[in-house]
Simulated assay, not measured.
Amino acid sequence: MIKQALLGEFLYESENTRKILKAIPDSALDWKPSEKNWSTAQLASHIAEVYNWYESTFDREVFDMGTYQYDKGDISKAKNIVSKFEENVLKAQKVLENSDESRYFDMWKMEINGNILFPPTQRIQVIRGFLYNHLYHHRGELVVYLRSTGNKVPGLYGPTADDKK
């Protein structure tokens, strides 16, 4: 039953992620609000990458960022970031569909070369916080990036100021 709820949210929200990634024009990819922030391309690529973390979160007890490898591909074109998202979201959906609910309350942690980055926590909390909410946070940032570069923002939870009334 928990899996069905997670899957329903996943499917709905992955469509919202798709909408916002597809709204990014190539002309906005290099923009960043300050020197401390990622560029639009880096932020969008990170959003696509979060879907690559599902296997390490659902199927392992420890996610070791010290051994984690990810090829983000060419992020100089928005269509490439969308393609990477599509690849990752399909894999993530399969991991979620095949997940074992009996393991949702097992402990999980993230480390890098033996140093704990994310302390032992029940997997279900990590799924909601680290995978889902983390992604929504970055999508919110991306909305601000789009607005700041004069681009339209798609409606994710209803119409936006860009939608005709």
Rank of each mutant, 00 (worst) to 15 (best):
H46M: 02
H46K: 01
I47R: 00
A48V: 06
E49R: 09
E49S: 11
V50E: 05
V50G: 06
V50Q: 04
Y51P: 03
Y51N: 03
N52D: 14
N52F: 12
W53P: 01
W53L: 07
E55S: 08
E55D: 15
S56Y: 10
S56C: 13
T57F: 05
T57Y: 06
T57K: 01
F58S: 05
F58N: 08
F58R: 01
D59V: 07
R60G: 02
E61Q: 12
V62L: 06
V62M: 02
F63M: 09
F63Q: 08
D64S: 06
D64R: 04
M65V: 14
M65H: 12
T67K: 02
T67A: 07
Q69H: 05
Y70Q: 07
D71K: 10
D71H: 13
K72M: 12
G73W: 00
G73R: 05
D74T: 10
D74E: 12
S76V: 09
S76F: 04
S76E: 10
S76K: 01
K77E: 15
A78N: 07
K79T: 15
K79F: 01
K79V: 15
N80G: 12
N80V: 04
N80T: 06
I81E: 09
I81G: 03
I81M: 05
V82I: 05
S83T: 14
S83R: 13
S83L: 12
K84Q: 11
K84S: 09
K84D: 12
F85G: 08
F85A: 06
F85V: 06
F85M: 08
E86T: 10
E87G: 00
E87Y: 09
E87P: 00
V89L: 11
V89G: 05
L90P: 05
L90T: 08
K91E: 11
A92V: 02
